[in-house]
């Protein structure tokens, strides 16, 4: 049985003036024990997808099952199997970490004694034992995220949904949380996480679905996605705008990003000399040239036409193709 199976789900919000299609058509499946990443920019539909799968939003159309339970009709059964740490899930700042774990364990149905045991286990797991009796308002951002993660694990869920678990954290705290998530996967927990960080998806996810404008535009392992680019990426940099414009006419299927032109070819390193010869023969001055293996960034650019914020170039780039493509 699949851990999660999502078939053509849609979510439409109707306001007095407008109808907004937050999720247009999303399908994917997740095997037990894997980390599945939903990668996309803000507003792509990742969080809405998670809210639907965790029974917090009604699915407008399509169907989804969690460990065989239908999300739409068996929501209570679904909630018993999952743990949820949403981007905007709240934590009672005026209580202590220990009180929060204890009351959450009681709400899940543990006896008083078992709740104490579970509280201590989880405090240990997320590294908050020393801060357990401090009020949460004194915790750092990273500690709050670890607490949030711990609270989503109280019922020992088989499937864990994490919505942008590391957004806003410093690199050190992010690394700590990644290690926690990997440990959970190693213990058999299936993790579905959303992220807008390419590095996070690359580092954590066994498989990735790229979501853009409410649609899954690519899916696979990181290596499969990179291989789908079809070769190496050669980047030509130009200091002169005229050279850049002339180079565009020569380099087939190139994409412009600022003063750079990028082209994807097989055996990038081997092809550089012939490209350089051709450009210089046309009196085009190249400032720099490099070949690299494709990154998730390149995959994202290829399937969406722009770069993800926070990635190398960071802004939506203008897609320009050579005239003689």
């Amino acid at each position: 049985m699949l851990a999660v199976e999502v078939k053509n789900i849609k979510k439409t919000f109707k306001t007095k003036k407008d109808t907004v299609e937050a999720v247009k058509d999303v399908s994917f499946s997740v095997e037990k024990g894997e980390i599945f990443g939903l990668l996309g920019p803000n507003g792509a539909g990742k969080s809405t997808t998670i809210l639907m799968l965790t029974t917090l939003l009604r699915i407008t159309d399509g169907e989804a099952t969690i460990l065989g339970s239908d999300v739409a009709t068996e929501d209570k059964s679904v909630r018993e199997k999952i743990g949820v740490a949403l981007q905007d899930t709240g934590i009672d700042n005026i209580l202590t970490g220990r009180e929060l774990f204890f009351s959450t364990a009681r709400l899940w149905g543990y006896s008083t004694k078992d709740s104490e045991t579970r509280t201590n286990e989880l405090l240990e797991l997320v590294g908050l034992t020393e801060a357990a009796d401090r009020r949460v308002k004194t915790y750092s951002g990273g500690m709050k995220r670890r607490l949030d993660l711990g609270l989503s694990l109280v019922n020992s869920p088989e499937i864990l949904f994490l919505d942008e678990p590391t957004t806003g954290l410093d690199p050190g705290s992010r690394r700590v949380l990644w290690d926690e998530i990997k440990r959970l996967r190693d213990r058999g927990v299936t993790v579905i996480l959303t992220t807008q960080y390419l590095e996070e998806a690359d580092e954590l996810a066994d498989r990735i679905a790229i979501i853009d404008e409410g649609l899954v535009v690519a899916e696979g392992t990181s290596d499969q996605l990179k291989a789908s680019i079809g070769g190496d990426v050669i980047t030509f940099s130009f200091s002169n705008k005229l050279d850049l414009e002339n180079a565009k006419k020569i380099l087939n299927d190139c994409k412009q990003e600022g003063n750079d032109l990028r082209i994807t070819v097989q055996d990038g390193a081997g092809k550089i000399p012939s490209f350089v010869n051709e450009l210089t023969a046309n009196n085009i001055e190249i400032e720099a040239v490099s070949a690299s293996k494709p990154t998730l960034d390149d995959v994202f650019l290829k399937v969406t036409g722009y770069r993800l914020e926070g990635s190398e170039t960071s802004t939506k780039s203008e897609e320009v193709f050579g005239e003689n493509q």
Partner: peptide, 11 residues
């Protein structure tokens, strides 16, 4: 604060 949502996600 989102605490409401947390409770909603629990049975």
């Amino acid at each position: 604060s989102g605490v409401f949502k947390r409770y909603q996600s629990m049975p």
